[in-house]
């Protein structure tokens, strides 16, 4: 059984364990966006990076995919890790400011500035919905298409999928989906910024960012959403995004 140290603590784990699992076992909190138990590790969000000392090599590695090997020294919150995560989260906020999950991460990490123009993407391509659909729902109805800057989550040919059973699991697991944000409920939101921007479903129902067709979220929240739409003021800048 491999034995390694994490933040100085020696831990013995079973072969095949990942660093993230080992850290969770020790109760060390590592932020993640693309990892959920029950789904295969993916390594796309890069938020779970930790510093790994392997022999003479010191590098940052995503803990959700890196195997716990014998003799490793791991640091989950070294200065290097913290700096990288903060810069990464800054980029996340700029890309997807409407996500409550991302805003929470930013505030927890003390990210106080965003130096990029806001993009308001609907998706951070964490791939959770794709894996959920394939590995838990056994449907394989959605997937990625394209690569690099043209990569996105789609249904084949952007039309209704034959294999989609409308289970809604993809919506449920999405970390940036609007459903997770309590919306107009002022107490529970970080900033109410989401009121000023269009929501994922609203904006992209036609080209179906949301893989469901018709979208459950819109059906459920139909009237209320319409209400929000009235309040939409797209011209207003998102408060935390101080533009240069």
């Amino acid at each position: 059984m491999p034995t390694l140290t994490m933040n100085g603590i020696t831990v013995e784990v079973e072969r095949g364990t990942t660093l993230l699992e080992a850290a969770q076992f020790l109760g060390l909190p590592i932020p993640t966006l693309c990892h959920e138990d029950g789904l295969a590790p993916y390594g796309g969000c890069r938020l779970c990076v930790v510093e790994v000392v392997n022999g003479a090599k010191k590098s940052l590695q995503s803990s959700c995919t890196y195997p716990a090997l014998d003799g490793l020294q791991v640091f989950t919150h070294s200065a290097r890790v913290e700096k990288a995560r903060r810069l990464l989260v800054e980029l996340y906020v700029a890309t997807c400011p409407q996500s409550k999950r991302i805003q929470d991460l930013a505030s927890a990490m003390g990210v106080r500035q965003v130096r990029y123009d806001a993009k308001h993407e609907h998706c951070i391509q964490c791939g959770l919905c794709v894996r959920m659909c394939e590995q838990q729902m056994m449907a394989g109805a959605i997937g990625f298409s394209g690569r690099g800057l043209h990569r996105e989550v789609t249904r084949p040919f952007d039309t209704t999928s034959d294999t989609c059973r409308q289970c809604g699991a993809c919506l449920y697991i999405c970390p940036v989906c609007e459903l997770r944000c309590a919306g107009p409920d002022a107490e529970s939101t970080l900033c109410n910024g989401c009121l000023n921007i269009s929501t994922a479903c609203f904006q992209t129902y036609d080209n179906a960012m949301c893989s469901l067709d018709p979208c459950h979220a819109c059906e459920i929240d139909g009237p209320f959403r319409a209400d929000v739409r009235v309040k939409l003021q797209p011209q207003i800048e998102f408060p935390v995004l101080a533009k240069k």
Binding site: V130, S145, G146, R147
Partner: peptide, 25 residues
């Protein structure tokens, strides 16, 4: 052609979303 990709997915027993991903990658 779209039909061809569907045909290939059936032949190889892989989800159409996989074939589509490869075809666009």
């Amino acid at each position: 052609p779209q039909e061809a990709l569907r045909r290939v997915a059936r032949k190889l027993q892989v989800p159409l979303s996989d074939v589509y991903q490869v075809a666009t990658f």
